[in-house]
Design a protein around this nucleic acid. Structure first.
Lengths: 208, 208
DNA sequence: AATAAAATTGACGCATCGTCACCTTTCTCT
DNA sequence: AGAGAAAGGTGACGATGCGTCAATTTTATT
């Protein structure tokens, strides 16, 4: 009754191989079903149905529906994080620092629209936050780097916690707005956000 | 089996009187139980138990658990909104406008800590957003007023949607941080937020 | 007082959850 | 290779919570 074909050539025991495959299958099914039905409406059984596994098996991999969702968020976070780190390291001024971070984040949101939209769709009804320790790890590193940047003189000497909070707030709320637009423009969004913080918003007049 | 004593002296039919009383009783019980158990863990029965009413009665007043929660949020929003409007109207510069709004919001968050904390506690696990049409009405008016302000020259001519989004993001994320601090200071928070937007963050150096 | 209207009640049927005893597959060791 | 052990998969089951609804009680109307 198992429809799973193993194709991974890596040297792993069959056990590890199917475990990994199952885990991924559940995640894939979950992403799909969440997108179709929304978080609230999908049941654990809906998810497992898409994998050919038995209902009980789900619980060998995840504790609950919420945990799968969280795992999906983590997957997304993992995909942005390297780029964020990259940007952070190559910035030499605060403005570069900000523009790089915002651009990476907004671009990701537009690119991986599926993942982000899925998350957003679920946001409406009932929501697992994106700023849990796991998901926000990139931004937590951000706070550390802001501390660092202050020492190095790259970042102004302001309350790092508030600064981080404000940046996160700007990023997420603007992203929400952006994806609702007809033609989302990450560069424009990043410019706006950057100007708002470093220069005052006068810098980016809105063309009507 | 009804433990409710009517004490409202207003001239209302007994029907209206108990209806209003029941509605409020459910809301009060809900706030308490949500705070104790968290949104996810409380059941509709947990809520109704605190009122002496029967389980079916709950559904005469609210459609679901989520709806009560939303109603509680609306109650809170209703409490801030007049002050927000007040601030908005009396501002003559953008800076005043911002500082007023931020201060009202942060002060409310600190004052009505119970309501806000309840909300926050639930935020973690699973969350009903604060930016639904109802809750955010104050901020929706904000967007309208920003449009207005642009016309009047009080608010800089920038993309109003992004500006609103950014302000909301700053407000909520900073509020989250603020309430976690030992000695939350709404004035300092409002100063920070205002400086961040109007003047660039250099204006408020952080004392270490 | 009789009748109508409205609201309350709690038992019921339904759905989902998470568990667990049993079974199948994979691993290990000689 | 084969036997025993360990890991993992299975699906039926008990438990829990939901929302409904026919019956009942309470309030309004005439």
């Amino acid at each position: 009754m198992t429809q799973l074909e193993a194709q991974d050539p890596a040297r792993l025991g069959k056990r590890e191989k199917t475990k990994a495959a199952n885990q991924q299958a559940i995640l894939d099914a979950a992403r799909k079903v969440f997108a179709e039905l929304g978080y609230g409406a999908t049941t654990v059984r809906d998810i497992i149905r898409g994998t050919g596994l038995a209902s009980g098996t789900f619980y060998n991999y995840f504790k609950s529906k919420e945990e799968v969702f969280q795992a999906l968020m983590d997957e997304s976070a993992l995909r942005v994080r390297p780029a964020l780190i990259q940007e952070r390291l190559k910035a030499t001024t605060f403005e570069e620092f900000l523009r790089g971070m915002f651009l990476v984040f907004f671009s990701y949101v537009v690119d991986d629209n599926r993942a982000y939209t899925m998350m957003r769709a679920n946001s409406g009804q009932i929501r697992v936050r994106m700023d849990t320790p796991e998901v926000i790890a990139g931004f937590d590193e951000l706070r550390v780097d802001i501390d660092d940047g202050i020492e190095r003189g790259v970042v102004p000497n302001v309350d790092p916690e508030y600064l981080t909070a404000a940046l996160i707030g700007i990023a997420f709320e603007m992203a929400d707005r952006m994806v609702q637009r007809d033609d989302p423009d990450p560069i424009a969004a990043a410019d706006f956000a950057t100007a708002l913080v470093v220069g005052g918003i006068d810098l980016v007049p809105h063309k009507k």
